Simulated scan of single mutants.
Amino acid sequence: MRSLEIHAPGDLRLVEKEPTAPGPGQVRLAVEYGGICGSDLGYWRTGVSGTAVMKRPFVLGHEISGRIEELGEGVTGLAVGQGVTVHPARTRSPLPEELVGRENLHPDLTYFGSAAQDPHTDGAFAQSLTVDADQIVPLPEGLSTRRAVLAEPLGVAMHAVTRAGDLTGKHVLVSGCGPVGLLVVLAARAAGAAHITAVDLAEAARERALALGADEALESTDGMDQRISVAFEASGAPASLDGILRSIARAAIVVQVGNLPPTPVSVTLGPVVSKELDYRGTYRFVAEIEQAVQLLASSEVAEQVISDEFALEDAQAAFEAAAGRGSSKVVLTFA
């Protein structure tokens, strides 16, 4: 089988490996689609994603979908040929009591395609993948594996919405309309937001936001509607956060979805005090991927988040497209 490894910034390699047979309690699946995430792009561009620094080659990817090929001994409730996605996180030790319900913050958590731990955790950009059966998330009837490749980033978006609290009847801002920002629009609407304002410099991104359910799409936060009481910063750009803090209404909630740089940034924090803002972080997700597949099954419009599709052998071109200003979610095909 072929897998996609990162060896250094800009150095992607297709590597031949033997598939791993499933052991007891495991499942082997044929990967059909893989979505390129901002973290994958970070390793490809600079060798860094957030606070994780690449020290040696590893397999990229954590957004995948496919079909079960083989069941290990003792696995029940799943079937060969079944469409699935995969929860990419694993823990091997008990969760500290103070983190109950927040498994995403486990200090020993590993995640597919991540350099956060050493040794690094190989990802899922491979034609064949063997995982523990409890990582498998079956797809609801009618959900294609192509659309299901969005389940992991939608889980991230849904967790961000959860961090914001009840959105029922709220006016919401989403700043940054890349793939996760677009999925935050989808998740916020599903959570009951009454009005959604999207902000992005790129016209194509604004158009996608409107297609995903935003009520309006603007170039900046200047003159923002003072009824907006919840904002999601989804670009990871300090200037975007600065604009939100300056423009958001008093007593608002601001959720930081986009990864900010691991170095000091310039942001005017005075409004956090003078407006008594509630600034919250959000990190990956807990079990929201299970709700994500249900939302995807009922939302055909979600597929508009996917802008480009490339065969695995064209991975370099796929990463270049994903890094371009006109793209949204770029996916690889593994068949």
Rank of each mutant, 00 (worst) to 15 (best):
319 F>H: 04
220 S>F: 01
282 T>I: 02
286 V>A: 14
303 E>G: 05
287 A>F: 06
239 A>Y: 12
25 G>W: 00
210 L>C: 05
158 M>G: 08
292 A>Y: 01
142 G>W: 02
34 G>E: 01
120 H>T: 05
79 A>P: 13
139 L>A: 06
112 F>T: 04
293 V>Y: 01
60 L>H: 07
315 A>F: 03
231 A>C: 04
110 T>Q: 13
183 L>Q: 05
301 V>P: 06
161 V>T: 08
99 L>E: 03
263 T>D: 15
248 I>G: 10
312 L>H: 09
242 D>K: 03
214 A>L: 03
296 L>E: 08
179 P>A: 14
182 L>P: 07
132 D>R: 13
263 T>M: 09
87 H>Y: 10
239 A>D: 15
40 D>L: 09
157 A>K: 04
281 G>V: 00
75 V>D: 02
47 G>Q: 07
293 V>W: 00
38 G>P: 10
81 G>Q: 04
217 A>E: 01
305 V>G: 05
299 S>W: 05
331 V>L: 03
331 V>T: 06
238 P>V: 00
224 M>H: 08
132 D>M: 05
193 A>Y: 00
86 V>A: 00
140 P>L: 06
97 E>C: 05
289 I>H: 11
71 L>Q: 03
140 P>E: 05
160 A>P: 10
102 R>I: 09
286 V>Q: 09
110 T>I: 14
191 A>Q: 04
100 V>K: 15
23 G>R: 03
161 V>I: 04
215 D>Q: 12
145 T>S: 15
320 E>S: 12
6 I>E: 10
110 T>V: 15
196 I>L: 09
58 F>S: 11
188 A>Y: 06
123 G>V: 08
24 P>F: 11
158 M>E: 09
100 V>Q: 15
214 A>V: 02
194 A>R: 15
63 E>H: 01
93 S>M: 11
198 A>Q: 05
323 A>T: 07
23 G>Q: 07
168 T>D: 13
283 Y>L: 06
171 H>V: 10
264 P>S: 15
116 A>Q: 14
230 V>T: 14
14 L>A: 04
48 V>I: 15
168 T>M: 12
240 S>G: 15
260 L>I: 03
145 T>H: 00
